[in-house]
Nucleic acid binder design. Structure first.
Lengths: 208, 208
DNA sequence: GTATATTGTGAATAGTGAATCACAATTCAA
DNA sequence: TTGAATTGTGATTCACTATTCACAATATAC
């Protein structure tokens, strides 16, 4: 049966989402053009009407993820004005995104692994760079408002931010025995927070 | 020319190291049995005298990395007795290992990506679990000696520890503009430290 | 020194999966 | 309605790679 002709914008979305689903269910190695085509409901060769090749599809998936990450930043900007609260909310949102998007880590790592030529890293570099920049901006806001120590480079804090989520998501995906990423974050956030805040702001006596 | 007959123990090491070199230079996708064989100086089919297949080779490489990680733990045990100092030294050692072993991230991620069958994750789970356990033990030591807050789960601290290194190594490998992993650690460690230590121990007035 | 186990070789197999292309169908504009 | 651009199809090509196997050479034990 012949697939109904669909304009390329829509098809591109369908293809990218189909690719992401495949990666989510079977890992990156299970991603094949044939499989994508089947899910979309077209024949493999038709994919090349909409994407140059497999790598272009992977890039599109990465862009999907990037837009979701940045959407989280926008969301927390609307949910809070306090920098520390924004960071906390973003942390939760980010973890949720990474954990509930099984393809997330695979796609990130795929861009890493397929890196024969450094040119392919540029997409990943852009994506991570954009996100880090947004996080760093929030940190700088906190520094200007006196909530966050000014002697901490904002990028350092941003990278630490990522570091709170990435290993947790990995361990979770590995089905590490009894590891719950949300619990980890609940415990790790106060530690990170205490490291960030001005000493004078560190509350005294909220223990015992 | 015929390769000199070599016993399998030595060959296994040669093969694992050749595989690691290949991954380091050309990424995981460039790893082929033919390439490994060429580096070792034997014919591809001879590899199967020493390893069951390609995945077994990858597992061997992972074991190489694990032993190096655990060796770092042993080393810092000899270099310091203070828990916090041990953590600091291990952090530096760990970053150095990850950064100066270009294959490190690729191998870790490879076990992730190739994860069609969850059984292949067990090796990675073991490796990460062992290391986390060692780090957690140091943390617990610090807690018993009163240097580290006791209300922080030791595993949480251990995962955060990993999180200080992993993203930094990734960014470095991506050749992120002007990102230096050592500098990152230099800036991130005090933040982590302040989050870990007892409030009463937090020194007053080492600013200004 | 001889037998046996171990290791290396070359060729063949076999499956895979991405990409190309000529052609057909269908959408859309004019 | 007509014609051009767009999209889908099927077949084919192409390169690549892991793996197996019968056989040869070499180390090792006795």
């Amino acid at each position: 049966m012949r697939a109904t002709k669909t304009n390329t914008d829509l098809r591109q979305e369908q293809i990218a989402e189909a690719a992401m689903e495949m990666i989510a269910s079977g890992g990156l190695s299970s991603l094949s053009m044939a499989g994508i085509a089947e899910r979309v409901g077209i024949v493999p060769s038709a994919l090349y009407r909409h994407y140059r090749g497999k790598e272009a599809v992977l890039d599109a998936v990465l862009n999907l993820l990037r837009s979701r990450m940045l959407a989280n930043v926008e969301a927390v900007r609307g949910e809070a004005t306090d920098a520390l609260e924004r960071l906390r909310l973003l942390l939760i949102r980010h973890l949720t995104l990474v954990v509930e998007t099984p393809a997330f880590l695979h796609v990130i790592f795929a861009h890493f692994a397929q890196a024969d030529h450094q040119e392919r890293w540029s997409a990943l570099r852009d994506t991570m760079g954009s996100y880090l920049q947004e996080v760093a901006l929030i940190v700088e806001q906190g520094q200007q408002e006196g909530d966050i120590r000014s002697d901490i480079p904002s990028r350092t804090a941003a990278v630490m931010f990522i570091g709170l989520v990435l290993p947790a998501a990995m361990l979770h995906r590995l089905s590490m025995d009894g590891f719950d990423p949300k619990s980890h974050l609940t415990a790790a956030w106060p530690v990170f927070l205490q490291g960030l805040v001005q000493r004078s702001e560190a509350p005294l006596g909220d223990e015992t």
